[in-house]
Design a protein around this nucleic acid. Structure first.
Lengths: 231, 231
DNA sequence: GCTCGATTTGACCATTTGGTCAGGTTTTTC
DNA sequence: GAAAAACCTGACCAAATGGTCAAATCGAGC
């Protein structure tokens, strides 16, 4: 984010902060704020604890930086929601992006989950400003889709929660998913199937497509001769 | 659970253990395992810390008891899945029950989420036995529904994950939901609408009903003249 | 190759916290 | 009603942990 202000940071400082933040995200995700110790983070980053405190004066300051980083990723994904006016395209892009983030960035999602679970002591202001605004404007978009007859009438808030819950589940609960998958992480093919299942159920669930046809069928008259690939 | 073995517990012991477990569930949910202190739990339960350790020798033993209690509630809900052979009835009952638990028992769900987030250090064996078995057998049920043409072909695992994620979201992320609801918890009416939205989207999403008709329409020919109440 | 700020780190400290214990009080049992 | 068992608790301890600090080292400009 904001890559333009590498103000005065020396290369050494930049590299050390990067390594510390990476280690911190992992440790905070695995252990929560209280469960994480600055000693663990320093070890993971390969530096002495005192050196960590040279760059980040307190554990809380470090945590805040980690959470802000994650929130920026979240916002980045949020933009894909606006890629199209068509609900099928927009939701497919958004859900797909959120699923990708859950796969490639599970630690961040877990830190976020931990934070909300504990009543957002650090990010409450983000929830009440940025997140609330974003949500309100997307609710308006969804309501227009409903008014235009593009999707079935559903409460947009609860639709959004469903999307968030389902996509983030693949990051936050990946340990449970892996265990139920025989102790192995979902492979690329499995994950792609999961993604298509999520997209398919939601789009069909709001009447944007017919069930289980891969998400390509627009909602028209119920006898529309879709390009049904069959079973 | 197992109400038959109040073996030798005095009334005093029973009451104190109950109060401690209740306090522990709240504190563990709010603060996680490491974030919770036995002092906090003892305070919440209204007893001195040393007394808490008289009943539960270690913090971990207390935590284990809390998690086991939660798992039993989860299993209880799981039974509603088998109330009917019909997917609409079975899934409606199951989702409804899980939503009710999220509303009435959010602390338990949060403890569970915390545990999975941290790779299930305490309940890994449950995941690999009871949960795995339960899941496998319900996957078989769903596969039969698909084979019988009662629902569209979807991967049963990912359908189950979607149900778990969405229903538990209303407990685990209730702070975020409350914030986006103007800082107030969802009222009974709102929660009921959320529940119906979840049920409606999932049932329509797998082709068990038509979209947004309230979940009463069986899956027949796409021109079935359902008792459509809406627009 | 010298200077001065940036960086590194082992040693250290105050606080927190899980858990213990000895001695006291209450309840149960006979 | 007294002995035994169960229960209660203030005081205490050892370990862990967030954070400090002074001394040492490094690096870039001159």
């Amino acid at each position: 984010m904001r890559g333009s202000d590498r103000t005065h940071k020396s290369a050494i400082r930049a590299e050390n902060e990067r390594a510390i933040l990476k280690a911190a995200e992992e440790i905070f995700a695995e252990s929560g704020f209280r469960g994480a110790t600055t000693g663990m983070i320093a070890d993971r980053a390969g530096i002495p604890k005192a050196n960590l405190h040279y760059y980040f004066p307190t554990k809380e300051a470090l945590y805040r930086r980690v959470v802000e980083h994650i929130f920026n990723i979240w916002l980045d994904a949020a933009n894909t929601f606006d890629e199209s006016d068509d609900p099928v395209e927009a939701l497919t892009a958004y859900i797909s992006k959120k699923m990708d983030i859950s796969r490639e960035h599970p630690m961040g999602s877990k830190v976020w989950a931990n934070e909300i679970l504990h009543k957002a002591p650090v990010i409450q202001d983000y929830l009440e400003t940025t997140l609330r605004d974003w949500t309100a404007s997307r609710v308006a978009v969804i309501e227009r889709w409903i008014a235009d007859g593009k999707i079935a009438p559903v409460n947009p808030q609860y639709l959004l929660y469903m999307i968030w819950a389902t996509t983030q589940h693949y990051a936050d609960f990946n340990h449970q998913i892996d265990t139920l998958n025989g102790g192995r992480a979902l492979g690329a093919t499995q994950f792609e199937e999961a993604k298509q299942t999520v997209i398919g159920i939601i789009l069909a669930g709001i009447g944007a497509t017919s069930p289980a046809l891969g998400g390509a069928v627009a909602r028209t008259a119920p006898n529309g001769d879709a390009t049904a690939p069959g079973r």
